[in-house]
Simulated assay, not measured.
Amino acid sequence: MTASPKNIHANLIDIDAKGVLIKGEAGSGKTTLMLHLYRRCLSAGVPVHIISDDQTLLEEQNGQLMGRVPPTLAGKIEIRGLGIVDREQTLSHSKIELCVTLDREEIMLRYWDSQLEIIGNFEVKKLCLSSANIEAAGNAVLAALNLPLSV
């Protein structure tokens, strides 16, 4: 990664001190999955923070891949059908541990096949998931983070 942050089209949520980058085309369900994970973790008492919606700044810090919210989007989230709403911003950055790519396809892998996403100089565990079943996608994310599915 270069010294200056790279702005990418993705959401970032911090679950139990692990950053989950959620990528996908516009309308693929990135925010829906992020909010689903947020509600599940919040209700189970798992520490969770929405970092950024729609855009995430990526940069290397102390040998780690970090994601953070662009200052102009801090405390904002766009909810389809409602628009941009204000929200509490409790954490502004996270170390990226997992990269999720959402697709509208109905087919989702039954087993994780050790895929890695190369982001700059970093290898990050990658999941390719279908947005057709947000509950199943949420289960896959939680399992990849070694969290119980009861979350």
Rank of each mutant, 00 (worst) to 15 (best):
L37D: 04
A137E: 04
L82W: 02
E25F: 14
L91V: 02
P47S: 09
C128S: 15
T101A: 09
G27A: 03
L127E: 02
G120Y: 01
T90V: 10
A26Y: 13
S43R: 15
V20G: 11
R110G: 14
I79C: 03
G67D: 05
I50Q: 00
T2A: 14
A10R: 15
K23P: 00
R110D: 06
Q89G: 06
S92F: 08
P148N: 12
N121Y: 13
L12G: 00
V124G: 03
E60K: 10
M34V: 14
T31M: 10
I50G: 08
V46W: 00
D54N: 12
L149I: 15
L142A: 09
R80M: 07
D86N: 12
I51P: 06
A26H: 12
G63H: 13
V69H: 00
L35F: 05
T101E: 02
G138M: 11
N139H: 11
E97H: 15
I15V: 07
L12R: 01
I119A: 01
H49F: 09
V85D: 03
S28C: 09
C41F: 06
G120S: 01
L73K: 14
N121W: 10
I8P: 08
L82I: 14
L65H: 13
K95L: 07
N133Q: 02
E117F: 09
E25M: 10
T32S: 06
S4I: 14
R87P: 07
I79A: 09
G29Q: 05
I13Q: 00
I134Y: 01
L91Y: 02
I107W: 07
H49N: 11
M108P: 13
A10T: 13
G120Q: 13
R87F: 10
K126H: 09
L149E: 11
P71T: 14
L12N: 01
R40A: 01
L37Y: 06
L145V: 02
S92P: 09
G27M: 12
V69G: 10
V46N: 00
L142M: 00
G63V: 08
E97L: 11
G120H: 09
L33Y: 14
N133K: 15
V151D: 02
T56C: 03
H9V: 02
G81R: 15
A3F: 07
H36Y: 11
K6P: 06
G63N: 15
W112E: 12
A17T: 13
I77S: 05
L58C: 07
E59S: 12
I13W: 01
L65F: 04
L102A: 02
C128R: 08
A17L: 03
A74K: 14
D113Q: 01
L145H: 05
E25D: 13
Q115F: 15
I96K: 06
I22P: 14
E135W: 04
L33T: 04
H49S: 14
I79N: 03
